[in-house]
Each structure stands twice: as C-alpha cells, then as structure tokens.
Design a protein around this nucleic acid. Structure first.
Length: 285
DNA sequence: AACACCGCCTGAGCGC
DNA sequence: TGCGCTCAGGCGGTGT
C-alpha cells in the first residue's frame, strides 16, 4: 500500500526513465480509471449519471507529449509535459507504475509507449487508484492547494496550525490529506508511537511540545522509510520491480498483541477513525 | 462547518 | 488440496 515514501521512491526511480522522453502512444484499457477535466469529480465509477463518459482525447493521456518533470505532493504523483498538460496519478491501495510486466495482465489499465521503446504500465487490481488528466500546471497547482503541507517537509508550526480547533482524534487528523499530505495508516501509527502520543487524543488538545514532537516524528518515519526504499507490506515494488524493505522497520504497525519494542508490554489495537490502529498504552500518553 | 460513515474492489489469509 | 468467507484500506460522496 503506497504511502508517501513509496510514491517518492517511485518518482525518483521513474525520473531518469521518463524525463525528456516523448510518449509515442498512450492506451487506456479502462475508461473508468481516468478522470477528464469535464468528468464528475470522482470519476465515472462513482458517478450515478446514466450518460456515457465522453471519449478520451489522446493528449489527455499525454500522447505526443514530452515529459518535463515528475512532481509529488503527499501520495500524489504528477507527470507534467512540456506543453503543461499533466497526468496526476493516485496509486490508491494497490496501484503501481512499472516498466515491466505481463502484457496480458487484466489489471493493467493504461500503458504508455515511450520513444525509448520502453512501455510504462499502470496496474491497479483493486482500482482504488486512478488517473486525472489536467490541462495545465495551473490546474495541478489548484488541486494541490487543497492539500495540507507535505509530510516530508512538515514543521511543528505548520502542523500545529492545522490541528487547532479540530476535535477529531489526532490520528484522524493525520489521515486527512487536507491536514497533512502523505500520511497513511501505517505511518500515522508509527509517527504517533515515536512521538509518544495516543492515537485517540483530541487533535486540539496536544500541547505545543507534543505538536512539535509529532511533526518531527512524521519527518523521521518518512525519511527513514524513504532511505529504506519504501515499505512493502503487500505487493509494492518500485518502477523496476525491486521491492522496498522498510517493513522490518515498523515498530507498531501489524504488531498488535506483540511486545512493545520500547517497554516490552503488549501492544494494544483497536479502531480509530475507522482504521485498524496499533499503539502502546504505556509509551503513548 | 466539521466530521462520521458508506461503498467501491480484489487478493491475501484464514478455517474447515 | 481447495473452497468460501472475511477483511483490509484511500478517498470521494453523502448524511448528520
């Protein structure tokens, strides 16, 4: 399940393969994984409209375009072309973007033939991810303006500003991408453990020192996972197919009932913000 | 306005 | 061995 470190790892691994490359041919194998500028905001999967989706102009998928830059904000990856057209990629739970794969795989929903002869594949079995076609870099900036500060460059003041007035459990706030961009279920638990804060604490009730500690902890877990090449709890692999290896570094996620690595007591688990959550009663106040 | 909750979707992991 | 069941989870939409 890709979170920020996985997406950043992917961005870095794709960059040398895509920058300056022209996309000869783009093929969409499932219309409902793509959202065009005029489409319903959630795309045609969620739409109740009985009308048919409009056809996809090839340029929407960057056919004929030259890749200018790969950008990331939180868990979102943007492939921006020199003309300004941009394809925004969400990997969701099971999405991947790779240059190798089985051409008959039914879970490949889009592919791009590059002028290098290589083919980039968007694969997403569960289809929680998707592609958003944007007309300009301005449209990308507008979308990203709605997101919170990126978790990789978060500081205490920026986080505390986002938490004031929020009565939600702190974990719910961390998972809200408009609050902080890039924190998912795994790293929310990891950061809260590292900062010594219980996931159920009301966001607005954190002290200044706790807010600062949490921002620092988010940075630490993100950079740690990034240095390890992203975590690999399910089937995450980077663009060239090598799995990440941060899984061993998890202190609490997936360890419910096991011994806390700090105090030795049993780790608690429960549902917080409708998400499976693991924490240490003794170490997290 | 702020937040809770639903439903999308399929493979992993389980029990029998 | 193999079947069928449950569950996970990001995120937009809807309800409170």
């Amino acid at each position: 399940m890709p979170e920020l470190p996985e997406v950043e790892t992917l961005r870095r691994s794709l960059e040398p393969l895509l920058l300056g490359r022209r996309i000869h041919r783009a093929t969409l194998l499932r219309r409902d994984v793509l959202v065009l500028p005029g489409d319903p905001p959630g795309g045609w999967t969620r739409s109740r409209s009985s009308s048919n989706p409009p056809p996809v102009p090839p340029a929407a998928l960057l056919e004929g375009e030259v890749v200018d830059v790969l950008l990331r904000r939180g868990k979102q990856l943007a492939i921006a072309s020199k003309s300004g057209r941009t394809l925004l990629v969400h990997l969701g739970m099971t999405g991947s973007l790779r240059l190798t794969g089985d051409p008959t795989d039914t879970h490949v929903h889009a592919r791009w033939l590059l002028d290098s002869g290589q083919t980039l594949l968007f694969r997403d079995p569960r289809r929680f991810g998707g592609l958003w076609a944007l007309n300009s870099r301005n449209d990308l900036a507008a979308r990203w303006a709605a997101l919170g500060p990126d978790a990789l460059s978060l500081d205490g003041p920026a986080l505390r500003t986002r938490l004031t007035g929020s009565h939600r459990p702190i974990k719910a706030a961390l998972l809200d991408q408009t609050c902080v961009a890039g924190v998912g279920n795994i790293y929310a638990d990891e950061a809260l453990f590292l900062a010594g804060i219980r996931p159920t604490r009301r966001a607005s009730r954190l002290s200044r020192a706790e807010g600062d500690a949490l921002a620092a902890a988010i940075g630490t877990v993100m950079h740690r996972a990034l240095a390890a090449g992203g975590s690999t709890l399910r089937d995450y692999v980077n663009a060239v197919g090598s799995p990440g290896n941060a899984q061993a570094g998890h202190q609490v996620y997936g360890r419910a009932g096991l011994a806390c690595l700090r105090c030795g007591g049993p780790l608690s688990d429960g549902l917080v913000a409708q998400r499976q959550t693991v924490w240490c009663r003794r170490c997290q106040k």
